[in-house]
Amino acid sequence: MPFRIPTTAGQQFSLPWIKYSKIDNPSTGWGVALRMFFEIAFFRSLFRNTKADILNGRLYVGSNKWLWIGALAFHYCFLIILVRHLRFFVGETPWCISLIDSIDSFWQIGLPMLYMTDIIIAAALLYLLGRRIFNPQVKYISLPSDYFPLFLILGIVATGILMRYFAKVDITSIKELTLGLVYLNPIVPKGLGSLFYIHLFLVSVLFAYFPFSKLMHMGGVFLSPTRNLANNNRMKRHVNPWDYPVKHRHYEEYENEFREKMKKAGIPVEKE
């Protein structure tokens, strides 16, 4: 990283009696760590989101948290669902996964019990898709590669929900299959139905598509130099690994050009 160019989002560290923003404008590594934590865990920047409108020749800027709520809901539900799925890949379900599982089905509605995350992720995905379709600005900037992962994940969620609540597929058979994969001893139990194979196929597509796509934002957010650097370049020098000397004008050349004028004006010179 050649230059230390954080985007500062609060008061800088300067004079001792001025309170500075330790997190939004960090001057230390710890501050940066906190800033990144809030960025990654709570989408701090998106929380700041506003909405601008022009009405009768006036600009109105107001708070707008919908995208933040939608994005946060989607990502956390996705994470919890992913973690919940781990029980398919280990012989005995670890206590922490069981705990997440029981919290997620806290309301104890129906049998099998309804997971909150299933409802929320479906709603969040529909909201995110709806934005792309109905918000004219977002619609205009959207590429096919923006819709594709949305539909893909929607497909995964839909097949998952159908399997669990409607088709009620045999979980033991699925576990046989997944454990077989884990131990590199694949078996194909009977009676798993096409829904399961569609689900599995879409998940495989998602995994394969991930590294080539915008989904890489997951890793990229950690690398973003406007967020992960401290705002202290006047205090602590940052080194550019590929810095090189540049041709510039020296004072000597400058004085050579203007010496007579400088002398006449009584400005001190190096060479009389």
């Binding site: 989101n49 995208l67 994005a71 890489m216």
Partner: peptide, 9 residues
């Protein structure tokens, strides 16, 4: 160049 998801924020 890589990480934009075109969220429109």
């Amino acid at each position: 160049m890589d990480i934009c998801v075109r969220c429109g924020a």
